[in-house]
Write a protein that binds this DNA or RNA. Sequence first.
DNA 1: CGTATTTGACCAGCGC
DNA 2: GCGCTGGTCAAATACG
Length: 188
Amino acid sequence: MEGQPPTPNNVPYFFTPSVPSSAPLHPLSMLNQTMQNPQSSSDIDWATVLYSTSINNGKKNPISPGVSLTSRTMREGDDLNKNKVKPGKTKRYVPPRIAFHTRSTEDILDDGYKWRKYGQKSVKNCAHPRRYYRCTHHTCNVKKQIQRLSKDTRIVVTTYEGIHNHPCEKLMETLSPLLKQLQFLSRF
DNA sequence: CGTATTTGACCAGCGC
DNA sequence: GCGCTGGTCAAATACG
C-alpha cells in the first residue's frame, strides 16, 4: 500500500503487512502479527476495525428490541458526508463489522471457515462486483463481503460481519491429533 | 443426485 | 412519492 489509507472520521485503523500472493493469510492472523510487531515497512496494506459504536447522536449502541441503530464500515464508493445520520433519525441495526484490506491475487483468503456465496452485486463507482458470502455452519450467521478496489485491483477488501459461534473447522482439524495425544498422555 | 454457484427479482433505506 | 442503491432471496444452472 502506498502510504496510509484515507481516514474516515472516528474510525480506528490498524495496519497489516502485505499478503504474499502465493500464500494468503487469515487477516486476523495478520492483524495479530502487526499488533505484536509494529513494523515500519513502507509497503503495507491496511485494515479497518469498526466497533459497534453508534452514529445515532453519538450515543452508544444499546442492542435492544425496537431500537434501530447502525454501525457500518465505510467502503470504496461511500460518500462520507452522505452517510451522516440526521439528528433524531435512526437507521436499522447492523452488527459490528471488521474490514480488511489485503494485497493478494487470491480473492478469497483462507480463514479456516467454510463459506457459501449467496449474492453478487455490481457497486456504483466500483469496477469490480461485491460478492456476498455466508458461513456454511448451520447455527452460524456470520457473513462476509469481498470486493476489489477499483483504484488498485491488487487490493482485496474483505468485510466480516458477526462472530462465529463455532470453532474453526480447519484449526480443529489441525489440533485434534494433538489433543488426542495430550489426552492419551494425561492418563499417565 | 446432492451441493454449490449464478443471477435476475425483490425489498428496504435513503436522498431529493 | 419516486428513483437509486445495496443487500438478500430463490429458481435455474453447473459441477463433482
